[in-house]
Each structure stands twice: as structure tokens, then as C-alpha cells.
């Protein structure tokens, strides 16, 4: 699998990271180096092997479905770059 400039641009878009046009070839090259390294995994016989979901064989705990926290809008908004009237503020998303 070889990654070209267009694929690099698509991945950057998916990751929501702006990459300037002139930086794309170098980025594609870096991806290719890393993917070549990763492709060693193709040698391994994984027939019948379960993909790992949890490294420790323990059941996830459940708790009662009840409110345990909340009612702290000031604390929640304290670190927001832009907050108004009890809400996070972002650029307009609907016309």
C-alpha cells in the first residue's frame, strides 16, 4: 500500500488537521515509511485468533443508572475559549 499526496490530504481532512498543500508530499512519505514498518504484521499467521478487546480478563463493572454528578455549569464552562449565557460558543454552523 503506497500513500500518495491525495490520500495524505484525505487523511488530514478526516483527522481535522490543516496541512498546507506544499507539506503533503513529505507527509505522504512519512506515512509510507511507517506503513512499511507496520506491514510486517502481514507475515503473522492470525488464523483463528481473536482480536484483543481487553488486556485483563475482567468483566466491566456496572453501576446503578442514576445521576452521580452534574449541576456545575460554571465549572464545565470554566476552561472554554468562548462561552456565553451558559453555553459553549462556536462559529455559526447553520445558515
Amino acid at each position: 500500500m503506497s500513500i500518495d499526496k491525495d490520500t495524505a490530504a484525505r487523511v488530514a481532512k478526516l483527522a481535522r488537521i490543516r496541512v498546507e498543500e506544499d507539506a503533503l508530499p513529505a507527509l505522504a512519505e512519512e506515512f509510507n515509511n511507517i506503513l512499511t514498518f507496520i506491514e510486517q504484521l502481514g507475515e503473522v499467521d492470525v488464523e483463528g485468533v481473536e482480536p484483543m478487546t481487553s488486556v485483563t480478563p475482567q468483566k466491566l463493572k456496572r453501576r446503578a443508572d442514576e445521576v452521580t454528578a452534574g449541576g456545575h455549569p460554571e465549572a464545565v464552562l470554566k476552561n472554554a475559549p468562548d462561552a456565553r449565557e451558559g453555553f459553549f460558543a462556536v462559529p455559526k454552523v447553520v445558515e
Partner: peptide, 13 residues
């Protein structure tokens, strides 16, 4: 990639 890596992880463990 991802599923294969998780399978190899099972083998490493």
C-alpha cells in the same frame, strides 16, 4: 491494520 494488530496483540500476550 487495526484488527490484525489486535490479533497479533493476543498472540504477544
Amino acid at each position: 491494520y487495526y484488527n490484525r494488530a489486535r490479533k497479533v496483540r493476543t498472540l504477544i500476550k
